[in-house]
């Protein structure tokens, strides 16, 4: 085991999943909230950087819906990052 705690490899995915979880909670959609919560629990265990929502399909509790949602959000994110001329590879 590594001595030091490593940087979290997928900060963007974590942030979005947390946002969606909180939104679901606000709307009282508890099953959806739990789905995001479970997805987050596997994301926290996964040590490699993910390049797409599709790639995240190998994780437990990452279904079609969540993966597609992540890909769409990633697409939007890349688009805005290009507008700002900022580096796009912040998730890698």
């Amino acid at each position: 085991m590594p001595k030091r705690r490593q940087e979290f490899p997928n900060p963007l995915f974590r942030r979005w999943l947390e946002e969606w979880r909180d939104q679901a909670a606000e709307r009282g959609r508890f099953r959806l909230q739990r789905a995001y919560e479970r997805a987050l629990s596997s994301l926290h265990k996964y040590p490699l950087p993910l390049r797409s929502g599709r790639e995240a399909r190998i994780l437990q509790y990452f279904g079609e819906h969540i993966c597609r949602q992540l890909d769409e959000q990633l697409e939007k994110h890349r688009f805005t990052q290009e507008d700002l001329a900022a580096p796009t590879a912040s998730w890698s």
């Binding site: 596997s42 994301l43 926290h44 996964y46 190998i58 994780l59 437990q60």
Partner: peptide, 8 residues
């Protein structure tokens, strides 16, 4: 499963 990965 320790790494949150499903059965493949």
């Amino acid at each position: 499963s320790r790494f949150g990965v499903r059965t493949l």
